[in-house]
Each structure stands twice: as C-alpha cells, then as structure tokens.
Design a protein around this nucleic acid. Structure first.
Length: 630
DNA sequence: CTGGGTCCCT
DNA sequence: AGGGACC
C-alpha cells in the first residue's frame, strides 16, 4: 500500500491535483491517484447518503445554575438556606439566594442598597473564587461523563450538544412515538404534531431533566436548562422559568422568543459596545436588526460581524459546542480604591503571585508566558480599559513552579512582574492604579508522550481542585446536510465533489462525520494513534446537524440582500422554503471568505494532544493529511 | 471598586 | 504583543 500516513510534509499541490479529475488524468501517477480518488469519491458518497437518511438538526442544552455562588455557600453552611443571603465582592452584591430576592434584593445591587432593602441580609464575602471554581468544574465534569461535548460559559453555565445521545435513544427505542416533553414548553405550545425535530427535542428534554437530577443528587446543586436547536436559542430559553426548571423551545416559536426580547442588548453576543453602535444606526429592538439591510451593517461592522449579528437577531446560530477542557490561562487579580506606592504594588503583586503559583502547581502544567495587567485611575471615569505587558517565562523559573519550589519561583516572578510594571508606569512620577492582575498563559503539559500521565489525565481527576486536561473537540456539523441535499437534487457530481472538497477545507465535521463510514481499507492504513482517536468516545458518531428537512413556516421577514450561493442550482434554491434559503445563504456567506485560502498542512499534530485551542481548529487539517494521497 | 475566563482583531 | 468585547 502506498503510505497514506507517512510524509506529512509533501506539497499541497499534489492534493490540489488529485482533486481535479482533469489534472488526475494529466498526471504522471495517474493510476495510483485514480485509485485514491475513487476511494475518496466512494467515501464521500456513502457518507452523503447518511445525510439523506438521518435527521439533521442539533439538540443543544444550556445549563444555568441558580444563584451559583449563593448555592455553594449554602452547601458549605446549610444554616444559610433559610436566611436572606448575599454574596459580596468588594462593595457589590454579586448574587443572592432566593430568600433574599423575595425581599427585593437583586443581583449586582450595591451592598448599601441591599442592606437598606433588607436589613437582615446575611453577607458572605465571595472574593476568593476557589470553592466556586472547584464546584464549577465538578459540574462540567459530571456533564462530560454523559457526553464529552460540553462547553463552559463562565463558572455557572454549560452548553452541551446531545444530538448523539438523542439519536442513540431514538434508535434504541424505535416505537417511542409518544414521548412527552419534560418540563415547560416555551409558549405552552400544545403537544403539536410530532415532527421529527420536535420528537428529538422532546428526547432532549428528558436528557436535560435527567442531568439536572444528577446534578442535584450528586452535587446538591439546582439549576435551569434550556433545550433548543442551537446555543443561542438554548441559552435564551433556559431562563424562561426561574429557579430550578427547564424549558424547551420548539422551532415554531423561534420568532416569538426573538421578538419578545426587546432590547438588542439582551441578545447573547451583543455586548455594550455593539449595542451602542447598533443604536447609532437607529436599531434598538431585535426586530429593527432583523429588518435592517445587511449592507448597512456591513459598513459599520464588516461582513463577518454583520452577518453574525443579523443571524443572531433571527435566532440563527451555527456555532458548534466546543468542549472546553482545561483552562487556557490562570489569573488572579485584585481591585482597590487607590494604589500609588511602588512598595504597595510590589506587595500586592507578591500576594497575588504566591496564590497563583500554588494554583498553577496543582494544575501541573508549566506556564510559558506571564502577563501583568493594571487599570489606571482616570478622572473621566474611564474605569475600564486595562493595560497589560507580557513576557516569556524563562524555563528555569517555569520549572520551579511545577516542581514545587514555590517561594523561589514567586520571588523571581515578582521581579519579572516589576519590570513589566515599569514598562507601563513611570514610578518616579505620581501614579494611581486601581487594579492589578497577574496571569499565566501559554500553558504546556510537561509530559511529551501522549501516554504520559500529565497530558491527558491531570485536569479533573487530580485533587478535587484541579480539573483534568481534555482534548478540545468541536462538532461542526450544520450546513452540510442541506447543501448535500441540494446537490443530490442537482445531480451534478462535479458540483458535489467540489463542494465536498471545500467542506474538507473548512469544516472539521467532514472528518468527524466521515469516520463511522470511513473505508475500512483506508482506516487500516492510518497510524495507530489516529485510529484510536477516531474510535475514541469523543468522536463516536458525530452526526450531521443543521436544517431540518421538515418544512417550517418562514418565521421571519425575508432578508432581501441575498445573492445565491454559487455552488447551488438556482432553480433548486429558489424552490426551497424561505427560511431554508436564508439559512443556506448565511452559512454560505460566512464561510465564503475562508474558502479562499485552504491553508492545509499545519505541522503534524493530533487533536488528542494537549493544548486544545489549536487542536480544535486544526483537527481537520491534521487528520486530513493522513487522507492526502501522495 | 466584581473576578474571573474566552475569543477575535490588529 | 496588546487591546477589545463578551459572558
């Protein structure tokens, strides 16, 4: 056999050649390439069939713990359960339990106001995040034990892609025609005709209920869940009924939930700045954004952001759930009214660093970059805006952190930090800073070999306080099915192949989805570690996702700005339901720019490797090279 | 005067 | 490398 797994460094041009039938026939190594080519074609066609025969939309869960910090404190001290409890950071009530809320206390209220509203309010300091962090990772870990595709959002929220699990349950119980919904259904929709999509969401709601129950029995935590077809909608719907309840959003209610949102700021992904810029365009409500000509948005934000914002307003969100794994950085900070003495700065930095080094030590990885951040006092109440300087951490210092020479490490880091501080602040003049942050990033596992205990195993399982390192795996699987459906209709095999090739360049999903259908011959040729990777639970049946094939009413005003995707038969395209057209368009536009630069072959590494950030994005390119003919 | 994180752009 | 935006 020719060595599919070898020679990672050969040229892209060969790959390009092989992908063009004309070039293949012109090539010198016609025969071998032809075989390879046929293998590819059959793999993809087989795989394409799967799209036609399997449902395609995702089932996404969003979990949101109730007043998280307060819950943790009430677990530590059950006596607090019956009392109005507020968690205090500095002068602010960062959250409070529901007893306190009944008495008019709210989140982010100043301590003074809260005490005024509720004099009996019990305050607990919440500046030390250690316990919250630990509990937070226990939650993520628990969810991950059911399905590895869990993405953290802050300390108290998790997204989960349970499409696979739903599919499996559905397959296991073929005659589960009468699955009911667990928890609430948004808008109290009547059990309605069980479209395939709704059935799958119903299964999702049972999974959500089960997981919430697990969270309560195993960790003592209550929370809300939202069940929907994408992250945006799952997050939006999860807070519908508050505390300790869950809600499903059916596709038919998408326009309702978006419309009810009111202010644009309420759309996840639209922050303060973006909301202000939108307002400057005269857009204040979600409906304004839905109807705004895309061109106006493009001038203000550029195409990618414009498209993303418009999609969000329509309830569209194709972003994959990306498993979070171990943190990318560890930091510690403190804020204060005023600091203007170098000595104070030095002391504070030392204090922050000694705590950070301890955390770093438990983590087990070695930081290779150090960053110091400050916030200057500004008369114009420009409180935000931080400045930072960073530098490499010399290896001899980094080693001291991981190997337990904390004190030495700290003092050397302190002097490193002070140099950075001098780069930002002229200590000979008067200064006034209100915050200091120290941060370790560029974290690398020490073990070089994959089998070594360090790289894969250390995050969650270590001591209770340090989460395990987990490869970051993303399932990116939207668009595909609908595109392929379209192309099947338009018969043109060339189109199909070209399209599939583009998907390979831009979508990790192709590789993932392809795996269950990988040609056994090809599979055998893969290096052992890649085989293992493909078989690992994380990769097991990534299923396509995206558009439902069941017709849906067009819920939104049609955006009229669309051209037609170049790779799609215009006649076929025009016959599709409007909302399907719209979703195809947005997908197409979003990925169009990327298509230009294939940028294959990064260096050869695999997703199971340590740092997961690159792993997520490179997974397809890294795996791809093993399919690349030579 | 929140304390973390993450990702993206330049 | 540094800042911005977001949760």
């Amino acid at each position: 056999m020719d060595n599919i797994g070898e020679d990672s460094e050969d040229d892209d041009s060969e790959w390009i050649d092989i992908c063009s039938p004309a070039a293949v026939t012109a090539s010198g190594k016609v025969h071998r390439n032809k075989q390879r080519w046929k293998t590819f074609v059959s793999m993809f066609l087989i795989h394409s069939l799967k799209f036609i025969t399997t449902p395609s939309s995702r089932v996404i869960l969003h979990f949101d713990l109730d007043c998280f910090y307060a819950q943790v404190e009430m677990i530590k001290n059950p006596a607090l359960r019956e009392l109005p409890l507020g968690i205090q950071q500095k002068y602010i009530l960062v959250t409070c339990n529901y007893v306190a809320r009944e008495r008019g206390v709210t989140k982010l209220m100043s301590v003074t106001d809260a005490k005024e509203k509720c004099p009996e309010l019990v305050l607990v300091k919440g500046e030390d995040l250690t316990h919250y962090r630990e509990m937070s990772y226990k939650v993520t870990e628990l969810l991950m034990s059911f399905c590895p595709l869990v993405e953290r959002l802050g300390f108290d929220e998790n997204f989960m892609d349970v499409t696979e699990m739903v599919e499996r349950k559905l397959a296991d119980t073929p005659k589960s025609d009468s699955v009911s919904f667990k928890g609430h259904v948004y808008n109290n929709i009547t059990p309605d005709t069980k479209t395939p999509d709704n059935l799958r969401l119903a299964v999702g709601s049972h999974i959500a209920a089960e997981l919430r129950e697990e969270m309560y029995t195993r960790l003592g935590l209550t929370g809300c869940a939202g069940i929907a077809t994408n992250k945006l909608l799952a997050k939006l719907v999860s807070g519908t009924f508050k505390p300790n309840q869950q809600t499903v959003l059916l596709p038919e209610s998408v326009s309702d939930i978006m419309g009810c949102l009111g202010g644009l700021r309420r759309v996840p992904g639209v922050g303060h700045q973006t909301a202000k810029r939108l307002q400057a365009l005269g857009l204040v409500g979600v409906l304004d954004l839905q109807m705004c000509p895309i061109s106006d948005l493009v001038t203000e934000f550029g195409l990618p952001t414009a498209q993303r914002l418009k999609n969000l307003s329509l309830g569209l969100d194709n972003s994959p759930v990306t498993s979070s794994g171990a943190p990318q950085s560890l930091s510690d900070e403190d804020s204060f009214r005023k600091m203007s003495l170098t000595q104070e700065v030095l002391d504070k930095i030392r204090e922050l660093l000694s705590s950070l080094v301890k955390r770093m030590q438990k983590d087990g990885r070695q930081p290779h970059t150090f960053r110091l951040t400050i916030r200057r006092h500004s008369a114009t109440n420009k409180w935000f805006s931080r400045e930072s300087r960073q530098c490499p951490i010399p290896n001899h210092i980094g080693k001291k952190i991981t190997s337990g020479f904390s004190d030495e490490a700290v003092s050397q880091l302190v002097s490193l930090a002070m140099k950075l501080f001098d780069k930002m602040v002229d200590s000979s003049a008067a200064f006034h800073i209100t915050l200091i942050n120290v941060c370790f990033c560029n974290l690398q596992s020490r073990s070089t070999g994959m089998g070594g205990k360090g790289s894969i195993s250390s995050f969650f399982a270590r001591s209770t306080s340090s989460p395990r390192k987990t490869p970051k795996i993303s399932t990116q699987n939207q668009v595909m099915s609908s595109h392929i459906d379209l192309e099947m209709k338009s018969i043109k095999i060339n189109h199909q192949l070209e399209e599939i090739q583009r998907k390979m360049e831009t979508k990790s999903s192709v590789i993932h989805q392809l795996r269950p259908n990988v040609d056994p011959e090809v599979f055998k040729l893969l290096p052992e570690d890649i085989q293992k990777e493909l078989l690992s639970p994380a990769y097991v049946e990534s299923v396509s996702d995206g558009l439902s094939k069941s017709p849906r009413p067009p819920p939104f005003p049609q955006s009229s700005d669309c051209e037609i995707p170049g790779n799609v038969d215009p006649t076929v395209f025009s016959e599709l339901p409007l909302d399907v057209q719209r979703e195809l368009m947005s997908e197409w536009k979003q990925h169009k720019p990327v298509l230009k630069s294939p940028s294959f072959r990064k260096s050869g590494r695999t997703t199971t490797d340590k740092d997961r950030k690159p792993a997520a994005k490179n997974s397809q390119t890294n795996l791809l090279k093993f399919f690349k003919p030579n």
